[in-house]
Design a protein around this nucleic acid. Sequence first.
DNA 1: CGGCTACTTGAAGGATTTCAACGTAGGTGG
DNA 2: CCACCTACGTTGAAATCCTTCAAGTAGCCG
Lengths: 252, 252
Amino acid sequence: MPGSLDLSPFVRRVGLFVALSDRERRRLRSLEAQIRRVPARTELVRQGDPQRHCLAVRDGWAARAKLLSDGRRQITSLVLPGDLVGVFTDVAGVADRALVAVTELEVAEFPAEAVMELFLDQPKLAVALAWTTARDEAMLAEKAATLGRRTARERVIHFLLELYERLRLIGRTAGTRFTLPISQEVIADALGLSPVHVNRTLIRLRSDGLIRMDGAQVELCDLAGLRGAVDFEDIYLLHRRMPPPLERRLAA
Amino acid sequence: MPGSLDLSPFVRRVGLFVALSDRERRRLRSLEAQIRRVPARTELVRQGDPQRHCLAVRDGWAARAKLLSDGRRQITSLVLPGDLVGVFTDVAGVADRALVAVTELEVAEFPAEAVMELFLDQPKLAVALAWTTARDEAMLAEKAATLGRRTARERVIHFLLELYERLRLIGRTAGTRFTLPISQEVIADALGLSPVHVNRTLIRLRSDGLIRMDGAQVELCDLAGLRGAVDFEDIYLLHRRMPPPLERRLAA
DNA sequence: CGGCTACTTGAAGGATTTCAACGTAGGTGG
DNA sequence: CCACCTACGTTGAAATCCTTCAAGTAGCCG
């Protein structure tokens, strides 16, 4: 199936960063040989378990979360279609976080060694994957700023803006609207707040005319107003292209 | 100078993860050609600036920090001797965080391309560096849990335990004591608290007999008690050795 | 000694949490 | 087809943790 290469959100995402030859595309695509569907709330990776696999989400939303022994939980990142989890898993050995399906999920699973093979014989793809993890780290740093230094209102606004940009990149927005298929409790765990306070904050944003909500549909009515309220910098999300000199060097 | 290889905390740290040949050691060491000293409070990297260099701290403490436009600041990680900043800097292009010298600092600086060279012709070292960033990410995830879901007391305890383990690894502890050369304001920015509350929390830990402080000297009197108060898992800090099968494969 | 920086302490205020209850929608089984 | 159940959103009131403001102290360096 020739068209199937483009049906992988993962390959498409990597392709935004480096120009991929058909051969490289196929190589990446071959990682996603093993595809499965899991229902919402499935714990795909348990915190503390030995980890030997790498996962690529093809459809649906997941969350990586730190769990404390008394039940508190902090979501460190939402995992969207095209995102990769566990690139250096073979190096780490043990999962430091859980991975939970937030919605029903379609994921590809492949052994961590497959990534290492890539490191050995495809430096360009290796760097592209490394870049993926660099972006993850940048998002985590931004989350630290949110959790440590932003008010509840700022947290929610930043959360919505970041999600909007990420979804736009993978073509899952319609104008300034998108689907937010997660409960307020999940949002709370992502933002370090209580569900009740997330609720109140969302209601206030609505009554301030900044956003509109209808079921799982969210509309950012006043992008400028939202952006102005939180110094939002999307540099850390940007899909820059790989610097040309680097790409030339790696092509060899 | 033959002994100089061992004088690099950076090389020594990588050596804890993979067995290094003399040749590899030299190769790594050669990155640290350009060494300089900077006084405390120097801003080595400014947030938002284009970044073309990679830094290895040889002595002293630094901090990576997110700065908000109104002056709030969140330290995302403390950088200790042997730590590396900006491995994938060439990929990211722009600094998403500032890097500030907390104490006087001795750092080695080298062009990001030098790291890419490593990726091209030294897969084993490349993986070792990638592992470095994986560890950084794990620490950031742990920080997210701290900032989002832990109380002030838990934050401070976790902070001290983590620092203790990291310092122990690089041989900068004496029993359960170590030097903490940073002000309470820096601790506050690292933990998402106000300096005043950090102060009160530290005082309470002292009066509870969990720690002792004398100037910049800290002693963890009751390690078990401290660990029990915060479900501290050091798996994310652990210097596991690279999995043997992987190392064998990379040796070729 | 003066001036800086960091640490300490008290009191008041505020943002967020917790507890508890109610409403609603969708799904299931009788 | 209705009754029940569960999950989620909403709302109010009280409690709490932490921040802010303000002032005072201690140590260090020129």
